[in-house]
Design a protein around this nucleic acid. Structure first.
Length: 599
RNA sequence: UGCCCGAUGGUGUAAUGGUAGCACGAACGACUCUGACUCGUUCUGUCUAGGUUCGAGUCCUAGUCGGGCAGCCA
């Protein structure tokens, strides 16, 4: 029982896909290859989902592939925990949709040097999908890692030095900043800018050998200190960091910077379209400069930028999400209130609903805020078709059907999913004592109240119509039970089964009900843009979690661990993957049903 | 007061010089053994000013507003 739907949706169209389509038409590349390049320094969130869906979507639409590559060039901030969670999340999001496009490499593989037209060319091929799936000659595959290219990157750096395009600079970080100037004022050349090739080679070798402390020297591209683009003012390529790396251990003490590593990693993997968010727009000339100045033999990758996903009522910043975790505002990265993929998954949001959201949001260069309603609609739309229905009473109130004898049990047939083309059914037993939702009874009903009220009738779904005869209260005036008579002639197949009443409510037999903990979630923040004033914590919603004890129909004891079910008339719920135990079930509310009445 | 990018209803997005459309949302109504779903009706838009053109959301110029860039982060 899976919550995934497989309804085909037309391939989207946007400015990036137009570019790819034009490149395909012009036969510029043999195959379309994209990549999703997270830094393993946090969990993936819904913002990343946009990038994943875009990159895998394009690969899928052109029978190409999309490499999962860890951009792990800064060991100080990264951790193996994150590479594991990210790998898991990417596979989950793409599963059943673009699994076949996931580009992986042979475990342990590093780029091999080949010669094309007399030019040196590093390349690391992906593992063919057939080799991963083939049971006999199965190859162990893993994601790509920028750190697997450190040797190649280092060799390219030496090449840049030899071409007079890079130099070792002895300026301190502070002086480097001073020399860089400011956006409206040109920088000044470093005093070390004009060292000879041999000298640069020697210094770089000594940097690499670990002769110098952190940050005492750097390798810089020799471009233009007066450029109006800051990123062209002799940007750093390598820095000294005596730090253990989660993949390469203590092999290196010099680590490449993003701008240098990224374009070359793309090239080494044969990426054709390198898609990133808008803030890298000003880096694009540097991306191109590095590749062009190496005079590489194969077609170069091109970078294109698009606007990030910014959903309302959420924050999507790894740093700030980490803050929520560290400060204990949530239970962890996978707290069901978190906008992380692991949180959404635990909450019960299907991957297909996230893909649906991304599809409806589109891809542009306009930095918009996406209303959370769009996500909610995608989830409901997906789950309405996929989720089986069950009955659960969240806030029980006792009903006694006085004309049913104690111990009697009347079998009722309930439909599992009315949206299904071939609906199946299950049995539920109507007994003398029941629970209904306390909201479904009103002693003093408001106008146009359809549900149970003194002297009124209501239908118990899949059972029969009942009439409210008496409201029993305790000494304090609180309602303890409601005594009703059941009109068994209104059962399905009975002579009065067509009798109409305005309200139909859900119920469970009190003798058969099972108990469960139910966690009701609401948005994490109380305002649409929690970070607009710089302090998102001020807008934390203290009511974002409510835990209650509920009464469930017995069939709920047997649902699948990752199934999402609709509690009839209430919303969609799923078993909590961490805390739920057999015999002590814990349900998470994924989302409520739309409720026009409540408004 | 440097460089780069952007602007279409409340929100997101389409229209690639030729009827401003779709979705979400909201309001109302129909249907209903889920006040859900579905269906119907309604609502609201091309940032401003010039120019090119038979014709401009689209092209040009200027402006306005918003975002990004001065990590040895990515």
């Amino acid at each position: 029982m899976s919550a995934e739907t497989t309804t085909p949706v037309p391939a989207p169209s946007d400015f990036i896909r137009d570019i790819v389509a034009a490149d395909v038409a012009a036969k510029r590349y043999a195959k379309i290859v994209t990549r999703f390049p997270p830094e393993p320094n946090g969990y993936l969130h819904i913002g990343h989902a946009k990038s994943i869906c875009l990159n895998f979507g394009i690969a899928r639409e052109h029978s190409g592939h999309c490499n999962l590559r860890f951009d792990d060039t800064n060991p100080a901030k990264e951790d193996i925990e994150y590479v594991n969670s990210i790998t898991h999340d990417v596979k989950w999001l793409v599963s059943g949709w673009a699994d076949h496009c996931l580009g992986l490499k042979t475990k342990g593989a590093t780029p091999a040097l080949q010669t094309i037209n007399g030019k040196a060319d590093y390349y690391v091929p992906p593992v063919p999908q057939s080799k991963i799936e083939n049971q006999e000659s199965k190859i162990e595959a893993e994601p790509f890692f920028a750190s697997a290219y450190f040797d190649a990157l280092h060799a390219y750096a030496i090449e840049l030095i030899k071409r007079g395009k890079a130099y070792v600079c002895d300026l301190s970080p502070e002086d480097t900043e001073l020399y860089r100037g400011s956006p409206d004022k040109p920088g000044r050349n470093s005093p070390f800018r004009d060292r000879g090739v041999a000298e640069n080679l020697d210094w770089f070798a000594r940097m690499t050998a670990g002769e110098f402390p952190n940050a005492t020297r750097s390798l810089r591209a020799k471009i233009d200190m007066a450029s109006p683009n800051i990123w062209l003012r002799d940007p750093l390529l390598y820095r000294i960091r005596h730090t253990h790396h989660h993949q390469t251990g203590s092999k290196w003490c010099v680590y490449p910077l993003y701008d240098y590593a990224h374009c070359l990693s793309d090239y080494i993997e044969g990426i054709t379209h390198s898609l990133c968010s808008l803030e890298f727009e000003v880096h694009r000339p540097l991306y191109d400069w590095i590749l062009e100045n190496l005079d590489l033999p194969r077609p170069l990758p091109k970078q294109y930028e698009f606007a990030k996903l910014r959903p309302s009522y959420m924050i999507v910043s790894k740093r700030k999400l980490l803050q929520l975790v560290n400060e204990g505002l949530v239970t962890g990265w996978d707290d069901p209130r978190m906008p992380t993929l692991s949180g959404l998954r635990r909450r019960g949001v299907p991957a297909s609903a996230i893909r649906k959201l991304v599809h409806s949001v589109g891809v542009t260069k306009y930095e918009s805020v996406t209303e959370i309603a769009l996500l909610e609609h995608a989830i409901r739309d997906d789950l309405n078709k996929a989720a089986e229905r069950r009955m659960a009473v969240l806030r029980p109130i006792k009903i006694v059907l006085t004309n049913i004898a104690p111990g009697d049990s009347i079998e009722c047939e309930a439909v599992n999913n009315p949206q299904s083309d071939t609906p199946t059914t299950r049995k539920m037993n109507l007994t003398r004592d029941l629970f209904i939702e306390s909201d479904d009874f009103a002693e003093v009903p408001p106008p146009k109240y359809f549900r149970l009220k003194p002297g009124g009738d209501v239908r118990l779904k899949y059972a029969c119509i009942i009439h409210c005869d008496e409201v029993v209260k305790d000494a304090s005036g609180a309602v303890v039970e409601i005594r009703c008579t059941a009109d068994l002639t209104t059962r399905k197949g009975g002579p009065n089964s067509d009798r109409k009443v305005k309200g139909t409510i859900h119920w469970v037999s009190s003798s058969e009900a099972i108990d469960a903990e139910v966690r009701l979630y609401d948005r994490l923040f109380t305002v649409a843009e929690p970070d607009a004033d710089g302090d998102f914590r001020r807008h934390f919603n203290p009511q974002s979690l409510e835990t209650i004890g509920a009464k469930l129909e017995p069939a709920l004891a047997h649902i699948g661990a990752d199934a999402v079910v609709q509690f009839e008339r209430l919303g969609y719920f799923t078993l909590d993957a961490i805390d739920s135990k057999s015999g002590a079930l814990v349900f998470n509310r994924t989302i409520t049903l739309r409720d026009n009445w409540a408004k």
